[in-house]
């Protein structure tokens, strides 16, 4: 079987970058319960990324791949995560990216991604790559919890106060165009799907849209257009934000290569 590590790296990078972004709330979340929750989700995502990177390292058999090398010693164009996942948490209502973190943006992003990943892992748990199928079966259980958590908060914000409604509506309007990237054609996904070791997200689109529409309605939020620029993160063309994420995440490993503790 031809080894398609590009697709595995795409899945791993998604989990790692969102895990890293969510971890920015650790010690800073609005209340203690949310601090624990978002840190737990972060831990699940980084755990998923580790399993996927380890799988890539085993498949490549080149002696030059390891989970640490893949996470810490690749640069922005090497990463294949969705642009959606690297954006800052700054409020969608702020004029600049250096605005304050907004939990509504965090919740909306986790919701849009988890709603997709429940469908992706469901499909991949039956794929031909036994190790990927095992990772998918574990990750699916976690994705269900992430979806439930983020969906609850989308509904509570939307159906809450005037301010929470305004914030989650703005977050959805800001993030929704980035979801077009899910459905954008990529040979990396197409090849993996053709080999039975991947899935083309476009085949999951109707189910994803139905889930999102039902939640927006429950949250008393208006339907949101996804029209606009189609981001290209999964092709390796990223926003300016990923460089800052990597700089923070990779600096320790690069300053002290092979450090252990």
């Amino acid at each position: 079987m031809a080894v398609n590590t590009d697709y595995l790296l795409h899945l791993a990078d998604n989990a790692l970058i969102l895990g890293q972004r969510n971890a920015e709330w650790c010690g800073h979340a609005p209340i203690l319960e949310e601090d624990l929750a978002i840190s737990n989700i972060s831990l699940d995502l980084i755990g998923q990324a580790r399993m996927l990177y380890q799988h890539v390292a085993v498949l490549r058999k080149d002696g030059r791949s390891s989970e640490d090398l893949l996470a810490y010693f690749r640069d922005v164009p090497d990463f294949r995560n969705y642009t959606l996942l690297e954006l800052p948490h700054s409020t969608a209502l702020a004029p600049t990216a250096s605005g304050e973190r907004d939990y509504a943006v965090t919740v909306a992003r986790n919701y849009l991604y988890s709603a997709l990943m429940v469908l992706v892992w469901e499909t991949l748990q039956n794929c031909k790559d036994a190790q990927l199928a095992a990772i998918a079966a574990k990750s699916l259980k976690e994705a269900h919890y992430h979806l439930r958590y983020s969906r609850d908060w989308v509904v509570r914000f939307g159906d809450g106060t005037e301010e929470s409604h305004q914030r989650i509506a703005a977050a959805m309007a800001f993030l929704m165009p980035y979801t077009q990237e899910f459905w954008d054609h990529s040979s990396m996904e197409k090849n993996a799907a053709a080999e039975g070791v991947g899935v083309e997200p476009a085949s999951l689109r109707a189910n994803w849209e139905a889930e999102v529409a039902a939640t927006l309605m429950l949250a008393t939020l208006p339907a949101v257009s996804s029209q606009g620029f189609v981001s290209q993160g999964k092709h390796g063309v990223h926003s300016e934000h990923l460089g800052y994420v990597l700089a923070e995440m990779q600096s320790l490993a690069r300053a002290h290569p092979e450090a252990v503790w």
């Binding site: 319960e33 949310e34 624990l36 929750a37 737990n40 989700i41 831990l43 699940d44 919890y145 439930r148 958590y149 609850d152």
Partner: peptide
């Protein structure tokens, strides 16, 4: 109280009778 508790495997609950908070193994 929260879907996520002190560790990845637990949620945080509260008893409305004895008023004690407790961990629930999810």
């Amino acid at each position: 109280i929260s879907h996520f508790g002190s560790t990845a495997c637990k949620a945080l609950y509260r008893c409305l009778d004895c008023r004690e908070p407790f961990d629930y193994f999810k």
